[in-house]
Structure formats: structure tokens, C-alpha cells
């Protein structure tokens, strides 16, 4: 059984205006999945369905054997699926880093000694262990978002869902989060990144392309970004390196092979 199973899920905020239509997929333990889609494609709704913030109108979301339709398993699901949002300022509850990270464990009744351990674990997982007593207000956007991730990690989730968590960050902040995701993957955390940065999606194992509430394509980054028609239908663009390679080809430069990352482009050009 897969760690996360989404079966025929539909959801609508208003009647007859479905945001998600019959969405199904599975995510295995340790996988890194990216969900890409245009604004209004239903990405954020999907993210909220994964940790039972929203309950599907039809279909089921099953996490580690717990169905989100069952009210009693609500907290079992939220403990397993950590959700990080877009704006770090609106996720931090406390004025001191350690208090904020402690918020989650306090909520689920973890004992004081263990909370201390969890804070140390979560802060070192995001490389913020030196900021234990700092005030989040004085940190950069990337650092604040790392604290928000630590706050979720302190609940020891099996799956980390990043709902456009880099959208409000500058390139340096995005790089910080990418680094954190890399470390977490190494530690075996399943990561689902909801994003509209194609370069970020490139680092995933699999990509789901969401368009108008439906998954129109699933596949490895190479498969997805080679399928220009699907991308066009979903109103998405290709990674920067790919579009540079395209432009070069148009202008008669000999670019061999598929180009998806800066490294690919370098290799293709410097033969």
C-alpha cells in the first residue's frame, strides 16, 4: 500500500464550480513529487486536501492507512502530513523561534523533555540551530520559511507538503529551501512540492501536471518537460535552461540532446 493514496477526489468551494475533478494518484514513501500548474489550477486546494484541512466532496484521501473522511483520524493525518504555506509571516505563531517550533509538539501533547529534543532536531534539519532564541521578525524571508518548515518537522511528519513555499522568497531564499528539501529527502522524508517554478520541479522524481482541476500528465521531469503540448495546454513554461536551448536551436546553434538544467546546457554546448 502506498503511503499516500488519492482516489477519484473532487472538490468545489461553490456549487457547480469544481476546483478539482476526479483526481487520483499515489505517492510512495521517500518519493519527491512536484505538482505544477497555472494559477487557479487547483494546486493549493489539492495541498489542503492532503492533510485534511479540506475533506473531499467525493473520493478518498488515505494517508498511511488513515482516511481523511474519518473525523477520528484527523490528527493522525495531520501528524503524518506536514503542510507549509506560502507566506512565512502568516504561519509563525510565536515571537521567539524555539516557542514557535514547540507549538506543534505542544499541541499533540509531547512531553517537555521530548519537545526540547524535537526542537533541536527540527532546527538542525533546516540549518537554523543557531537561532533558537531569535525573533523571527528579524530574520530574512528564507530563514523565516525555514523556521516554518522546522515548526512542521517538529511533528515528525512522514510527508512534507510545500504549498508554493518559495513563491514569496527571493532567489537566495529559494536556494535555501531547495537545500533543506535535499537534506530531508536524504533523511527519507517524502516531499510533495506544489510550485510554479519549473526549475524547482526539475529536482523532483515525478511531476504531476495540474490543469483546470485535473491531472493531465504524470511522469519524470524529462518526460513532462519534453511534452511541449501538455505544457502549453496547462499554460506552463519550460525550465529556463530548456528555453535558452530552444532559442539557441532556433538561431542555428547546434545544441545536442535534451536540456533541462544549467548543467545539461553547459554539457550540450561545451563539447
Amino acid at each position: 500500500m502506498a503511503l499516500l493514496e488519492v482516489q477519484n477526489v473532487s472538490y468545489s468551494y461553490e456549487k457547480n464550480k469544481p476546483v478539482l475533478k476526479n483526481v487520483s494518484f499515489r505517492v510512495e514513501e521517500g518519493e519527491h513529487v512536484a505538482v505544477i500548474g497555472h494559477n487557479g489550477s487547483g494546486k493549493s486546494t489539492l495541498a489542503k486536501l492532503l492533510n485534511a484541512l479540506l475533506i473531499p466532496a467525493s473520493g478518498t484521501v488515505t494517508v498511511d492507512g488513515f482516511s481523511s473522511a474519518d473525523k477520528k483520524s484527523l490528527f493522525e493525518i495531520r501528524k503524518r502530513v506536514g503542510l507549509v504555506f506560502q507566506n512565512p509571516d502568516n504561519q509563525l505563531v510565536a515571537s521567539i523561534v524555539e516557542d514557535d517550533v514547540a507549538f506543534g509538539p505542544e499541541n499533540i501533547g509531547v512531553k517537555r523533555e521530548e519537545i526540547k529534543e524535537r526542537i533541536d532536531f527540527a532546527l538542525s534539519a533546516v540549518g537554523m540551530q543557531d537561532f533558537l532564541k531569535a525573533s523571527p521578525m528579524r530574520l530574512s524571508g528564507g530563514q523565516k520559511q525555514r523556521i516554518a518548515i522546522a515548526g512542521v518537522l517538529a511533528l515528525k511528519p512522514k510527508i512534507l507538503v510545500l504549498d508554493e513555499s518559495t513563491a514569496m522568497l527571493d532567489p537566495a531564499g529559494r536556494a535555501e529551501i531547495a537545500e533543506v528539501v535535499k537534506t530531508l529527502k536524504k533523511d527519507g522524508v517524502t516531499v510533495i512540492s506544489v510550485t510554479h517554478y519549473m526549475d524547482e520541479a526539475m529536482t523532483a522524481d515525478r511531476i504531476f501536471v495540474l490543469s483546470k482541476g485535473e491531472i493531465i500528465k504524470t511522469g519524470s521531469p524529462k518526460e513532462v518537460f519534453s511534452d511541449r503540448e501538455t505544457l502549453k495546454a496547462a499554460e506552463l513554461c519550460v525550465p529556463l535552461a530548456t528555453s535558452i536551448a530552444d532559442k539557441l536551436k532556433e538561431n542555428g546553434v547546434d545544441v545536442r540532446g535534451d536540456v533541462f538544467t544549467a548543467e545539461d546546457l553547459g554539457a550540450a554546448l561545451c563539447v
Binding site: 490528527f75 501528524k79 504555506f85 502568516n90 507549538f103 499541541n107
Partner: peptide, 14 residues
């Protein structure tokens, strides 16, 4: 902000 904060708190099992 209040709305988003409430979601974030819910997500952290409050």
C-alpha cells in the same frame, strides 16, 4: 492573514 494563520495552526494539529 488571520485566515491563513488559522489554517497553519490547524495544520500543526492545534
Amino acid at each position: 492573514r488571520a485566515d491563513e494563520l488559522a489554517d497553519a495552526m490547524d495544520a500543526r494539529c492545534y
